[in-house]
C-alpha cells in the first residue's frame, strides 16, 4: 500500500494582510508561511494509515522557499520519503491549486500510489480546490471533506462530511484522491531531535512531465474588504466598550 501526501505552504493569516502594488497578490514581504493546516491533517492521517496498515508514505511539495524544511518535518513525522517538484518561479504566473494541479498530477502518476491525501482546501483556492483537480487530471475517484480514512486491500472506506454535521460513509476502489478535512487523531508533535537529525538531509527533486495550467488570475484583482458598511464600532477602553454593549443589550430588550 502506497500513500502520497501533498504538503503546501500558505500565508499565515494571523497578521494583517497587505496587497502588492498591482493588487493582484498579497504583499509577501512581511508575511510568513506555514504548512496548510488541512495538509497537516492529511499528513497525520497518512502516518496513521502507515501505522495501522503498514503503508509507505511519500510526501511531495512544489519546490519553493521553505518547502525543504516542510518536507523534512514530514519525514520527522513519519513519512518514508519526500520529493520536491521543481518549478521555475519565472515560468509560473499563478500558484493557485488550478494552476499547479497538473504538476502534482504528473508526480502522482510517476509515484503510482493507492491513495493520495491532500488538505481539503487552501486559503487562496479562488479557482477551485486541489483534490478535485487531481481527480480530474488523473481520472481517479475523488472525495473531499473527508474526516475518516480506513484502508483494506484495493479499497478505502471514508467518511464524508456535509453541512450541519451530517455525514456519509463510502467504500471506494483505490487508487483514490482524498481531500481531507480532519485526521482521525490530531497531528502529533515531532520532537526537535528528529528535525535536528534531518538537518543535513537533502530532499531530492522529482522531475515530472507536466506544466502549470492557466487560471483566471490575470483578470482578478484583490482588495481589502470595505469595513465601513459593516459593524457600528464601539470605541474606548474596556469599560467604555462594556458599557456600550450593555446599553445596546438593554435597548434591544435582551437585558433589564
Amino acid at each position: 500500500m502506497k500513500i502520497v501526501v501533498i504538503q503546501r505552504l500558505e500565508p499565515v493569516l494571523t497578521e494583517e494582510l497587505e496587497l502588492s502594488d498591482d493588487g493582484r497578490d498579497i504583499d509577501r514581504e512581511w508575511i510568513g508561511f506555514a504548512l496548510n493546516q488541512f495538509d497537516d491533517q492529511a499528513l497525520e492521517q497518512a502516518v496513521l494509515l502507515k501505522e495501522s496498515n503498514g503503508a509507505t508514505v511519500t510526501a511531495i511539495a512544489i519546490e519553493d522557499e521553505g518547502s525543504d524544511k516542510m518536507l523534512k518535518n514530514a519525514l520527522a513525522r513519519g513519512a518514508d520519503a519526500a520529493f520536491q517538484i521543481p518549478l521555475d518561479a519565472d515560468d509560473v504566473e499563478s500558484r493557485s491549486s488550478r494552476a499547479l494541479a497538473p504538476l502534482y498530477a504528473a508526480a502522482i502518476r510517476t509515484l503510482a500510489p493507492d491513495l493520495v491525501l491532500v488538505g481539503i482546501l487552501s486559503n487562496s483556492d479562488l479557482y477551485g480546490e486541489l483534490a478535485p483537480y487531481l481527480g480530474a487530471h488523473t481520472g481517479w475517484p475523488q472525495i473531499s471533506a473527508v474526516t475518516e480514512v480506513r484502508l483494506a486491500a484495493g479499497k478505502a472506506t471514508v467518511r464524508q462530511e456535509y453541512a450541519g454535521g451530517r455525514a456519509a460513509r463510502f467504500e471506494v476502489d483505490t487508487p483514490v484522491i482524498i481531500g481531507l478535512q480532519t485526521a482521525m487523531q490530531p497531528p502529533r508533535y515531532v520532537a526537535g531531535s528528529k528535525l535536528r537529525d534531518l538537518l543535513k538531509v537533502q530532499i531530492p527533486e522529482l522531475e515530472v512531465d507536466g506544466a502549470p495550467s492557466a487560471d483566471m488570475s490575470h483578470g482578478t484583482t484583490l482588495a481589502l474588504p470595505d469595513q465601513s458598511a459593516g459593524a457600528v464600532m464601539f470605541d474606548g477602553d474596556a469599560d467604555d466598550i462594556a458599557t456600550s454593549i450593555h446599553n445596546l443589550l438593554k435597548e434591544k430588550g435582551f437585558v433589564q
Binding site: V12, T14, E15, I31, G32, A34, N73
Partner: peptide
C-alpha cells in the same frame, strides 16, 4: 517554534 522560531506563530519577518 519549529515553523516560525517563536511561540506566537508569527512570521519571523514580523
Amino acid at each position: 517554534f519549529q515553523s516560525q522560531g517563536n511561540s506566537f506563530g508569527k512570521p519571523a519577518k514580523q
